[in-house]
Amino acid sequence: MPVLSLNESLLFTSMLFSVGLAGMLVRRNLVFMLMSLDVMLNASAVLFVAAGARWHDASGQVMFLMILALAAVETSVGLAIILCLHAQGRPTLDADTGNLLRG
């Protein structure tokens, strides 16, 4: 019996995911939005591992690794975009001005 039952893990990951979603929707700063996205990805990854522990299957941790790779790519590309916007002289990191992208 794992120390956390699957029900508790579900509770925990749902709450973590919702917090991440709230951060994603509330914050307008791009850096914070990326961090919230990472929190959401972590929540789903923990759920995979918990399910893998419940049924004693290594696939859960394989999925965890895939999510890790995805998060690494997502973060690096997102941060590169932020740096690029900053280097082009955009004064703020406000995501809501992103719809004014020109060039």
């Binding site: 019996m1 794992p2 120390v3 039952s5 699957l6 029900n7 579900l10 509770l11 749902s14 709450m15 995911f17 919702s18 917090v19 979603l21 709230a22 929707l25 509330v26 893998g52 522990a53 419940r54 049924w55 004693h56 290594a58 941790q61």
Partner: peptide, 29 residues
């Protein structure tokens, strides 16, 4: 956004069927 996120959290918790029954013995992967 807060209401939206809270709603989603509630729905997720509600939708998650409680798992019971025999679980595997603790043998770390």
């Amino acid at each position: 956004p807060g209401v939206l996120a809270g709603l989603l959290c509630g729905e997720l918790l509600y939708a998650a069927t409680p798992f019971s029954g025999h679980a595997w013995p603790l043998a770390p992967l």
